[in-house]
Amino acid sequence: MPLNALTTAHVRIDHYSAVHLAAEAARSLGKRCGLPGALPDQAAVVASELASNINKHATNGALYLQPLPLGGGLEILAADRGPGMPELERCLRDGYTTVGTLGAGLGAVSRIATNFTVRTEVGTGTLACARITLPDQPDQAYQNAALVCLSADREHHCGDAGTIVPTGDAHTAIVIDGLGHGAEAAEAAQIALRSFHSAAERPLPDILAALHRALRHTRGAAVAMLRLYDAERAEYCGVGNVRAVALSPDGIHHRLTGQPGVVGWRMPTPRTHPIPLPAGSTAVLHTDGVDARWTLDASLFMLRLPPPLLIASMTHHYRCTRDDATALAFRPPKRHP
């Protein structure tokens, strides 16, 4: 399944009834991702347990459900602004409870998911990522990539798109923001995404030129791309207000915005910029539906999150709900001696 065949399903956990909605969203996504047998029902159990945990213990929580960035399954992200879990290890054991229930929640999630990652900060909240893969692709649960693509509130179409694909000795990521909102913005974004897939192996300026031709009869788009190499380096190329950020566990090291212009209308000659990306660093692309001030507020806790939880934190805490919002993060593999 192409990464952006579905936008992210966003389920606010503001009432117990949302637990059922989350379970149904996970079951439906599991079927559309091709999970066989009982796996869609198990995805529903994972979503139900994560949503129930938020409903019982936290505030301002949500689940984000989407296909895995590089294919092979799905992931369920959970984010809240609750009290955090001071005894995280105990919370992950079956039978542990603070509210008099059976205490199967997070322990059940850990058993069912191919990979389960959770981080918590007392007084701030908890972030979790449960990935469920196709039975013959368990390694896909450990990919160091993440993507959330959300439509604006009350919009039926998402004018953003994004993906990351293997290209030779590298991975190439793209984030697209179709101008405006609604169906016409979504059409531009999807045309650009299809054009990208057909040209992804080419140099980044050539890819932008191909997108520019493809978008001439649309309202156009802002586009940013990153090519990430195993050798701890990256190249950036972009036009319009899609931002690129490189961060390490110690801080933000690069902030880049695309050249002024619109892909499909008035596009300058594209330029590439090298970005050092040492092992342990994370590269991020995001549209203006995620407030760029997240880079000014990022705590050490946030900087040290793995890509799925970083994206969950960004979109949950810094998303502008009046706009489509897409954020993509990728951490290059460690170099082997």
Rank of each mutant, 00 (worst) to 15 (best):
N4R: 13
T8M: 03
R12V: 14
D14I: 03
A18V: 06
S28C: 11
G30I: 08
R32V: 12
R32T: 15
G34N: 12
A38W: 11
P40K: 03
A43R: 09
V46Y: 03
I54V: 06
A58M: 08
A62K: 11
L70A: 09
L74W: 01
A79Y: 08
M85N: 02
L88K: 04
E89M: 06
R90A: 08
C91N: 02
G95P: 03
L102P: 09
G103H: 07
A104H: 14
V109S: 05
V109W: 03
R111I: 04
T117P: 00
G123N: 11
G125P: 03
T126E: 05
A128Q: 07
A130Y: 14
T133E: 10
Q137N: 07
D139C: 02
A141T: 07
A141E: 06
Q143D: 03
Q143P: 00
Q143L: 00
Q143S: 13
A146Q: 06
G162H: 01
T163Y: 00
P166N: 03
G168R: 01
V175P: 05
L179T: 04
I191Y: 02
L193V: 01
A199E: 10
R202E: 13
I207Q: 04
L208Y: 09
M225G: 13
L228Q: 00
D230P: 01
A234I: 06
V242M: 06
V242P: 00
R243K: 06
A244Y: 07
L247Q: 15
R255P: 00
R255E: 14
G261P: 14
M267C: 13
T269P: 04
P270A: 07
P270Y: 04
I275T: 11
A279Q: 15
A279N: 13
A283D: 00
V284D: 00
D288Y: 12
D288E: 15
G289T: 09
W294C: 06
L303R: 12
I311L: 09
H316K: 08
R322P: 00
A325W: 08
A327Q: 05
H336G: 02
